[in-house]
C-alpha cells in the first residue's frame, strides 16, 4: 500500500515536471509524458518508495505551506547573516562543529532536515549518525547538545514531524 502510494506520487511528480519542461502544451506531449512517467516510476531498477513517507492529510498540507514560509524566511536571514560576516572588515567568525539531536526517523524527513540546516543561518550539516547530527557552526553559541538542538533543529523539526513522520 505504502509502495503503491509512493509510486503514484512519483508518477504524478514526474508528469508535472515533464509538462513544465514542454511548455507550449499539446496532447501528444501529455500522452508521451504520461507513458514515460509510468515507465520510470514502475521501473524495478529505481525504487521510489521514499515518497511514501509523505503524509497527505489536511493538517499535513497546512504544515507544508507553513514550512515553506519558515524555510524561505530562514534562507533570507541566513543570506543576510552571510552578507554581514563577509562584508564586515574583521570577519567575525568563530567556527566549530557541534552535535545536535533529532527525533525524525524517516529518510525523507531526515534529508529535508539536513538540507534545511545547511541553508539556515551559519550552519552546515557535516554528518548524520543515527539520532546525532553533526553541524558546522560559523559562530558557535552553545556547545552542549541540548541548547544547540534548541537553537538549530527545533524550529524545523516540529513541522517536519507532522509532514513526514
Amino acid at each position: 500500500m505504502r509502495t503503491l502510494k509512493a509510486k503514484i506520487l512519483a508518477m504524478l511528480a514526474l508528469w508535472v515536471v515533464w509538462m513544465l519542461l514542454t511548455a507550449p502544451w499539446s496532447g501528444q506531449e501529455a500522452i508521451a509524458g504520461a507513458i514515460i512517467a509510468i515507465l520510470v516510476a514502475f521501473l524495478p531498477l529505481f525504487p521510489a518508495s521514499l515518497l511514501g513517507d509523505l503524509k497527505l492529510g489536511p493538517k499535513a498540507l497546512v504544515y507544508m505551506v507553513a514550512y515553506f514560509f519558515v524555510f524561505i524566511k530562514a534562507l533570507v536571514l541566513s543570506n543576510l547573516d552571510v552578507a554581514f560576516r563577509v562584508l564586515h572588515p574583521k570577519l567575525p567568525i568563530d567556527p566549530g562543529i557541534v552535535k545536535v539531536r533529532t527525533r525524525l526517523k524517516t529518510p525523507l524527513g531526515r534529508l529535508l532536515l539536513a538540507n534545511s540546516i545547511t541553508l539556515t543561518p551559519g550552519t552546515i550539516t557535516v554528518e548524520m549518525r543515527g539520532e546525532d547530527v553533526f553541524v558546522h557552526w560559523i559562530k558557535v553559541a552553545a556547545t552542549d547538545p541540548e541548547s544547540a538542538t534548541e537553537a538549530i533543529v527545533t524550529g524545523f523539526e516540529k513541522y517536519l514531524e507532522v509532514i513526514c513522520g
Binding site: 533570507v76 552571510v82 552578507a83 563577509v86 562584508l87 541553508l119 560559523i138
Partner: peptide, 26 residues
C-alpha cells in the same frame, strides 16, 4: 557577487562553503 567575495575572503574551506552554498542558492 556576495558568494564570490565570500570565497575570496573566508579563511578555510568550511567557511567558504558556508558563504558559497547559501548565497548561490538564494
Amino acid at each position: 557577487l556576495l558568494s564570490g567575495i565570500g570565497l575570496i575572503r573566508m579563511p578555510d574551506a568550511f567557511n567558504r562553503m558556508q558563504a558559497g552554498t547559501k548565497a548561490t542558492t538564494l
